[in-house]
Design a binder for these strands. Sequence first.
DNA 1: AAAAAAAGGGGTGGCGGCATCCCCTTTCCA
DNA 2: TGGAAAGGGGATGCCGCCACCCCTTTTTTT
Lengths: 208, 208
Amino acid sequence: MHRALVVEDQDLMRLALMAELRTCLRDCYVAGAQALPVACQLLEEDQFDLVITDPGLPGFDPTSPEDRLHVIETIVGAAPNSAHIVVTGSDDEDEARACRLLGVQGYVCKTGLSQGELPLVLEQIDRGEFSLRLSKPHTPNPDLRFPTLTPREHEIIAMMMRREPGTKRREVFDEMANQLGINAASSEKYYKQARAKLLKLGRLPKGL
Amino acid sequence: MHRALVVEDQDLMRLALMAELRTCLRDCYVAGAQALPVACQLLEEDQFDLVITDPGLPGFDPTSPEDRLHVIETIVGAAPNSAHIVVTGSDDEDEARACRLLGVQGYVCKTGLSQGELPLVLEQIDRGEFSLRLSKPHTPNPDLRFPTLTPREHEIIAMMMRREPGTKRREVFDEMANQLGINAASSEKYYKQARAKLLKLGRLPKGL
DNA sequence: AAAAAAAGGGGTGGCGGCATCCCCTTTCCA
DNA sequence: TGGAAAGGGGATGCCGCCACCCCTTTTTTT
């Protein structure tokens, strides 16, 4: 079983990162700490394979490079055998380099880190590379969440709305089917179901 | 049906806020935007009852008070009839006051905003008050997530581990039962189930 | 010694999401 | 004018979570 620790003071973000870990490392134990002392205590009590840290913790100045690196140094020092990923709200290539020198394997900016991207970072680290993900000028697609739609239904609707113009629906069904390892007829069914629900709500987006 | 918009550039945080809204305003439609232009476009196309905004958006300097207030002003101006909540990583009481003057009803710091707290903010706003939640020196309880445990099982384990010393388990069962409107025997069952699973995993925390 | 709390099991029905397979009509366009 | 794409349904089995109900034994409390 894998063991991971997330050190991050924003509760929702910490829980989100923990949830990401739970879905990409299946059968894993994930702990979370909102401050440095709690994190150090957990690292003392237990061995972790992976530690994800946001250097902007309470008690430190998130705009001070020294404070931030001190947090990283403390965490890495407390768990020298773990893989370490730094997750931050403000990217800084210099800081990324400094983290690397401290023994960190990945440096990821929160902006642009969306659901399901953590596995890519982990794969890169598994291959022995340093994973650097700075904020990218993002494709400006709005997210939409509707009542009564199931996760699968949301998924196919989102894929359908961000498809390239001219793409056949059929192709999107195939794409989703490939991604999930299911039948294309099933993704088509989810789409139809979702469409029917949205029609009933009177909230059918213009892409149909 | 309620309509809400979340303007936040960090994907996981935006999705988390949207999920929070979906559970506290049931039967609602929630949109999300990661940048100001997308947000303005959505506000033009549709009417929203509630808009949650993080003023640190791409294209603006998150450390510049002017940039931040400009973002808020633009959003409020684009949706003058909506309720507005500002969510930020760095609290600042002066900024909170400035936001209030711009027509914002709530100012919430991400640190200390945990799952299920958004409803309290919304209730306060419904009563016509200005909801101010700055970061608080938080109770340093680690989060724990185990494989194979269901949400209910995690819930009762978390409650059990953070109970005051001397509290009977029975009392915690009653507390959870009251919160969820279920039978105390059921919460007891969840606890027993969770305990059995943790024992089998060899990961039973010390509080038993 | 009696009572309460805790530990450790068993089984039940209901519900919703997932995935599959089937049917039909309409529309598009090459 | 065909065939593919799209729109619109119904029905099925599986599985996991939820909430409930029942039982026994051991430990702790009083």
